[in-house]
């Protein structure tokens, strides 16, 4: 475990220097909110940010990704044969990612990289990416990472964690990938004891700033069918407009749909984000829809995150507490409240 210091005024130069080895993504302000962009797109990085509006999941798992190509030209020798679309898996670094969003990749890894099934595109991109986290000195009021197994300086899923000490960053290498990144970074100096102490204090005071406690401890003991049949779902779902905001902004929502698109005789097979909130998500070819009602779709989202995932993987909930859905749901459906209902539900 290496501890290094980087002066903030040198930080951009350091990152520029790393461009030889990595494609670097940094938080950039774009209009009213922040988003991750490649360092070379001429926009100034802004590391003094609460979090990005959309989670960085799209950097590993793009909203639309071409996976295969094919030709429908009967005269071509490879007509109708699916060929994998060429991809760039050269090393990338996401610099400034928040701990909850890194934790989120660990949560979805269980789904995309399991012993039985692997999503080769997700796996390769995840493996070729190094995550340089930035601890949160000032968590905001919707953050509840500490309730779901994370924390503002949680290291799980990160390769390096940065402590913002005001004038400098203290960088702590956490994995071989991370150590490698730090070894390549110019302008580093050895961390002195005072800085290390300061970093520890920051982490402590950040955790203390999160006063929200969302209870998840009893979800595991609930009987699935009882929760499924709970009396509160219609009420929880009333205001929902079944949009894709919560699932598309969420770093831990992973559902996708496969579509073929053809122009002339050339076709692409595309993997697109999908959402359990959309009626089309479960529409059968027959016309039957097992989740025809809004409350069924709302129930699915919460049951998946807070019960099915919990039971299937024994790895906590499928939520990293980033608070995006809480903040941006247009009708204020609050997962923290729903979680409380589920955690305390008694069928009698």
């Amino acid at each position: 475990m290496t501890l290094k210091l980087f002066a903030k005024e040198q930080w951009l130069t350091t990152l520029e220097g790393l461009k030889e080895s990595y494609k670097i993504f940094v938080p950039v302000r774009d209009g009213d909110f922040h988003t991750f962009m490649p360092l070379d797109e001429g926009k100034k990085p802004d590391f003094d940010y609460p979090n990005t509006r959309l989670s960085p999941k799209s950097l590993i798992y793009p909203q639309s990704e071409r996976i295969f190509e094919y030709s429908l030209d009967e005269s071509a020798p490879d007509a109708h044969i699916l060929k994998e679309t060429e991809k760039d898996y050269s090393p990338r670094a996401i610099v400034g990612i928040r701990p909850c969003d890194a934790h989120a990749f660990k949560i979805v890894e269980l789904n995309f990289d399991s012993p039985e099934y692997k999503d080769p595109w997700w796996v390769q991109r995840y493996e070729s990416t190094v995550l340089i986290g930035l601890g949160c000195n000032d968590p905001v009021s919707t953050c509840f990472c500490t309730s779901v197994g994370g924390g503002p300086f949680d290291e799980d899923g990160l390769d390096v964690i940065l402590y913002d000490l005001g004038e400098s960053y203290l960088a702590k290498g956490l994995t071989d990938k991370g150590e490698d990144f730090l070894a390549k970074a110019k302008g580093r100096t050895k961390a002195d004891d005072a800085s290390i102490k300061r970093a520890e204090e920051l982490a402590k005071s950040a955790s203390d700033k999160i006063s929200v406690n969302v209870p998840v401890d009893r979800l595991k003991d609930k009987v699935i069918n009882e929760l499924f049949a709970a009396s509160f779902w219609e009420e929880v779902a009333f205001s929902c407009i079944n949009c894709g905001t919560c699932t598309y902004l969420c770093p831990t929502c992973w559902c996708f749909d496969i579509q073929d698109e053809v122009i002339g005789k050339e076709g692409d097979r595309i993997k697109n984000w999908d959402s359990c909130m959309f009626p089309l998500f479960t529409l059968h070819g027959s016309g039957h829809n097992p989740r025809d009602n809004k409350f069924q779709r709302v129930r699915q989202r919460f049951m998946h995150k807070l019960k099915y995932y919990v039971d299937k993987y024994d790895n906590g909930v499928q939520c990293s507490g980033c608070g995006r859905c809480v903040r941006y749901c247009p009708v204020n459906i609050d997962i923290r409240e729903v979680c409380k209902l589920m955690n305390s539900y008694r069928s009698d």
């Binding site: 959309l54 949009c243 894709g244 598309y248 959309f278 247009p330």
Partner: peptide
Amino acid sequence: CIRCYACRNA
């Protein structure tokens, strides 16, 4: 636009 359809559904 992320095609979430919140505008339409609202």
